[in-house]
């Protein structure tokens, strides 16, 4: 096993991450405005931006889902129990005592088990919930005749808002965890450059050196 700097976040991966991050921030900001929690924009402008960015993000998400499935990247997010307890114990205890992070990144698993589980929950629970409720909300004009009491749109709105706050909470934890371990800058850098320090098996190193030399930093 050798620690090498390897390109693990491809260009599409990084573009996906940052445009998604920017979209989520814009959606949270405009969403808070629509709820009346701040007054920076007019309500109409906030709704327009919220709707347009939401549609753009859903398109991006559709591309991403396609990319995850066709490239096999989805395996990065598959849940597994091995190491989960150690990571959880680290965040709850070891981190306060200056212990080393128990997880070593490998090429096939760039996320620690807890991270992978959190991202999976985001992808299969929160995002679909917010997208589906958002689509229902946006397209209310098409099905409002099925909802004479107005109960359904109330439920849709509440699901949408609650899920959005859950995503907001994820963003808070996500950004905070960047400060754990080697520090904020060190953790953000790989998502900018694409290169991350991972443990490579001799076979992986030999393969990359021969077939994809550009993914290896000398």
């Amino acid at each position: 096993m050798a620690e090498r700097k390897v390109l693990v976040y491809t260009r599409f991966n990084r573009l996906w991450h940052w445009s998604q991050a920017a979209s989520i921030l814009v959606l949270l900001f405009t969403g808070l405005r629509i709820m009346g929690l701040h007054g920076v924009l007019t309500f109409g402008l906030a709704v327009t931006i919220h709707s347009v960015v939401a549609v753009a993000l859903m398109l991006l998400w559709a591309f991403t889902a396609f990319w995850l499935l066709t490239t096999g990247t989805w395996r990065q997010f598959a849940p597994r129990r091995a190491g989960l307890w150690q990571v959880a114990r680290f965040y709850a205890w070891g981190v306060f005592r200056g212990e080393e992070h128990p997880y070593r990144k490998v090429l096939r698993r760039r996320h620690n088990p807890l991270q992978a589980l959190a991202y999976l929950a985001l992808k299969v629970l929160l995002f679909p919930a917010v997208f589906l409720s958002g689509i229902a909300y946006l397209g209310y004009g098409l099905w409002d005749d099925l909802d004479p009491s107005g109960w359904a749109i109330w439920a849709v709105a509440n699901i949408h808002i609650l899920t959005a706050f859950a995503i907001g909470s994820f963003v808070v934890a996500h950004v905070y965890l960047l400060t754990v371990g080697h520090g904020f800058r060190e953790h953000v850098k790989p998502m900018l450059t694409g290169f991350e320090t991972v443990d490579l098996t001799p076979e992986q190193e030999a393969y990359l050196a021969a077939e994809e030399p550009r993914r290896l930093k000398p």
Partner: peptide
């Protein structure tokens, strides 16, 4: 009728609490 922006519905109150806890 549900009119967005006229006040926080339950989902918003619970959501704000969740965010505050985070």
């Amino acid at each position: 009728v549900y009119i967005p922006g006229t006040g926080l519905p339950p989902g918003g109150i619970i959501g704000l609490a969740l965010l505050a806890m985070a």
